[in-house]
Design a protein around this nucleic acid. Structure first.
Length: 570
DNA sequence: GCCGTTTTCGGCCCGACTGTTTTCAGTCG
């Protein structure tokens, strides 16, 4: 039981209590979950020390439940609740369906799963419930479609470590010569359906025995000499394929995909008198194998530069490779800092300024922007007009203590419906950096929303527009924008658009990143960190940037400190 | 279920918006 698992349990309890209509307790459990998630120490360790109740929001009762979870790996209280309310947790992720409506459709229609909800809607049953109507039905239906698009898929950050662990174990067994993670995970897509792993082995039977016998394996779906599929205890599916060593490159190319990329590549092979398969590149006339041991050899024979996996989506990469015009994709080493982070000054931020500075130094950053919420809506308190000076002063004082890391004093200012800000121009002017973000009124029509964003982009103190589409993965669609206008204005005003690296957002997405770059817009990769470990999201942001064809020169946080400062002057 | 210069009980964020109502309930941010 790690911190995240325990937090998950408490969030689930909160959901179920919400449905029961219990007041205030859900809030208590959610608070506890959030505190536990953001701890830097392991809860198990704290438990051993007998200090559970020192954790904020953890009292006698929740401490007892944590102890039970650690000791027994389960929780009777949760099991009872689940029995009482057999609603699938996924159902509560549907937008426009809150606890009250979920309760109603369960009690009156017996709906407990997403499938049943879809059926009930298509049968017209939902709209007939009192308190529901045609509009409610339509809104829930919309929510269902968003869930549908991400169903059964995992975020890259959930799958990445799993792929790494399994690969490591296979290699350590000495039963495999080569092992490579392929598929969409190698292409660093942000949503992953399953993991594809490719290997070579001199002893396929033993190798497959070892693989299907791994301790993480919950179910063996199929098992053969060249292909076995398993489902892990965390429900992720992994396919392992064994190939001959001299086909490893061809198989690697084939199983990395994407399918459209492969189709284009095969057409190209045919046009040059070859045949390309997962076994290799062959001459069409006499079946002679001309390449296959490495990916490079295949691309080279076809007259192409080797194409980085992130680009293999049939979005022009094959033509670019033919002409030697593939981008030199940005790498982790190119990034010199993070330009979107929150401190405790944001109501929802956990980072102390000094910790942020230490962490930035540890990562070898030369700068980090502290961009706390300014007058954000809802519960999140933040920087008000009168707080700006103190915010700046604290950061300046801290900077005295560091030679190589510079904290930048900034805000994430809320773009109001008319495109203006609550903070005065005078206050914004004093800050080193201003990140502008839309956090309310998402449903505006395209024209109004575009005007709103254009005005923010054009503001002379605004440097970056955070999470420009407002999309939340699996939760909320992008709002409507005229992207040509947005890109043109951003280039004209030297305002960067953000690649928000937080897995809940991944915004801009790869297509829009490419679109922005094609129109000469600068990008900023920001983690939107609310906790120190969120700074790790930078890697995911770089993957996303690479999928959007970004080079070092497209990204402002690849600039050196002095260069960045002069860029921020607009 | 937690917490405390409101301190061992009483309070816990709240306004905007939407849809379903005929004065309000539910959801979202």
């Amino acid at each position: 039981m790690d911190n995240e698992e325990i937090a998950k349990v408490f969030n689930k309890i909160a959901d179920l209590l919400d449905i029961k209509g219990v007041q205030f307790k859900p809030r208590a459990y959610r608070r506890a979950a959030r505190e536990i998630e953001s701890l830097s120490r392991g809860v198990v360790e704290i438990y051993r020390d007998g200090n559970l109740e020192n954790i904020p929001a953890v009292g006698e009762n929740i401490a007892e439940k944590i102890a039970e979870l650690i000791e027994t790996d389960g929780l009777e209280y949760l099991e009872k609740l689940k029995e009482e309310i057999p609603i699938d947790p996924g159902l509560l992720k549907v937008r426009n369906l809150g606890p009250k409506k979920a309760k109603k459709i369960w009690e009156e229609l017996g709906v407990t799963t997403i499938d049943q909800l879809e059926k009930a809607i298509s049968e017209g049953k939902v709209r007939e419930l009192s308190g529901f109507g045609k509009k409610s039905e339509k809104n829930i239906s919309k929510g269902l479609k968003i869930v549908e698009r991400t169903r059964g898929k995992y975020l890259i950050n959930e799958v990445l470590p799993v792929g790494g662990t399994i690969k490591g174990k296979l290699l350590d067994s000495n039963l495999f010569d080569k092992v490579r993670v392929a598929g969409s995970l190698r292409r660093h897509k942000y949503l992953i359906g399953d993991i594809d792993i490719l290997g070579t082995s001199l002893n396929p039977n033993k190798a497959m025995d070892f693989y299907t016998g791994l301790e993480e394996v919950d179910e063996v779906i199929s098992k053969g000499e060249t292909k076995s599929s398993v489902r892990l205890d965390n429900d992720i599916r992994i396919d392992l394929r064994l190939v001959a060593g001299d086909s490893f490159g061809a198989a690697s190319q084939y199983f990395t995909g994407s399918q459209p990329h492969n189709v284009r590549l095969r057409e190209l092979a045919i046009s040059q008198g070859y045949k390309l398969s997962e076994y290799g590149l062959f001459r069409a006339d006499n079946e002679e194998k001309v390449a296959g041991e490495t990916e490079e050899s295949i691309y080279e024979k076809l007259g192409l530069n080797w194409i980085p996996p992130e680009l293999r989506e049939d979005r022009g990469e094959i033509d670019a490779a033919k002409m030697g015009k593939l981008p030199q994709l940005i790498t982790e080493g190119d990034v010199n800092g993070d330009l979107h982070c929150h401190s405790t000054r944001s109501g929802d931020g956990k980072n102390e300024l000094a910790d942020l500075a230490d962490e930035a130094a540890k990562r070898g950053y030369s700068y980090l922007a502290v961009t706390d919420h300014a007058d954000a809506p809802g519960v999140i308190s933040g920087i008000k007009e009168g707080d700006v000076e103190e915010h700046i002063a604290q950061i300046r004082a801290l900077n005295e203590r560091y030679d190589d890391v510079h904290l930048l004093a900034g805000v994430e200012a809320n773009v109001q419906p008319d495109g203006s800000f609550r903070l005065s121009d005078g206050a914004l002017e004093q800050l080193d950096i201003v990140v502008a973000g839309v956090h309310s009124h998402f449903d505006m029509e395209e024209e109004g929303m575009t005007e709103r964003l254009l005005r923010a982009i054009a503001h002379r103190e605004v440097n970056i527009v955070a999470h420009p589409t407002g999309r939340k993965v699996g939760e909320r669609d992008s709002f409507s924008l005229n992207w040509e206008k947005v890109f043109d204005k951003a280039r004209e005003c030297n305002t960067a658009l953000e690649i928000n690296a937080s897995p809940s957002r991944f915004d801009l997405d790869d297509r829009l990143i490419k679109g922005a770059i094609d129109r000469g817009v600068k990008l900023s990769i920001g983690t939107d960190s609310h906790q120190l470990r969120h700074l790790d999201f930078m890697q995911l942001g770089i993957y996303l940037a690479r999928r959007g064809w970004a080079q070092e020169s497209d990204v402002i946080n690849a600039l050196r400190y002095e260069e960045l400062i002069s860029w921020l002057e607009k």
